[in-house]
């Protein structure tokens, strides 16, 4: 436990030092409304399918949006941007808002598919957001740091949620 506490202290200091002044305000290409999609029973994995199968959750390509927005669902300028991007062949250019430090290894598949951890456990109440994220990805932006990880990894005592440092830092 002493080892773990020492490690946490070092990581906390590094996170605090690294996060200062790193986040910047950005404008997303489309004023995406998570709440509207969630209310229409679109689960997170529809637009972020690799969260179930891969290491990263990734941001959706235009083709993913077009699965539902092939035809005009709403006479909204934001929806028109999707059709415009698809017709021009350009990517939408989402700006990532969640990022981990390069020394943290995190597998979405391990947590979402195998661990049955809800997206909100780490990402917060995203499905209640009606406005797009405005802060670009900085160190641990949006994620509540290692303390949040340890709520499961330390307190659940699950055989699958270990506290071996090398599980995530290698």
């Amino acid at each position: 436990m002493r080892r773990l506490a020492s490690g946490m202290a070092v990581v906390a200091v590094m996170a605090a030092a690294g996060s200062a002044g790193c986040a910047r305000e950005v404008l997303q290409p489309v004023a995406f409304n998570h709440r509207l999609h969630a209310d229409n029973n679109v689960p997170c994995l529809t637009c972020h399918p690799t969260a179930a199968t891969g290491q990263g959750a990734t941001l959706p390509a235009v083709s993913v949006c077009r699965r539902c927005h092939e035809d005009v669902l709403y006479e909204a300028p934001e929806e028109a941007k999707i059709r415009l991007a698809a017709e021009s062949g350009h990517a939408l250019g989402w700006v990532p808002v969640f990022a981990l430090r390069p020394y943290v290894y995190f597998s979405h598949r391990r947590h979402v598919t195998l661990g049955k951890v809800a997206c909100a456990a780490c990402h917060g109440d995203v499905e209640r957001r009606s406005t797009p994220f405005r802060m670009a990805a900085g160190p641990f932006s949006g994620i509540r740091g290692m303390g949040a990880c340890l709520r499961c990894h330390d307190e659940s005592h699950s055989p699958y949620a270990g506290v071996d440092c090398v599980d995530c830092h290698r």
Partner: peptide
């Protein structure tokens, strides 16, 4: 550098 739960000796680079 420490011995982990599996008894393997790990090296945590950020530390």
């Amino acid at each position: 550098t420490y011995r982990g739960e599996d008894g393997l000796v790990g090296q945590i680079y950020p530390r």
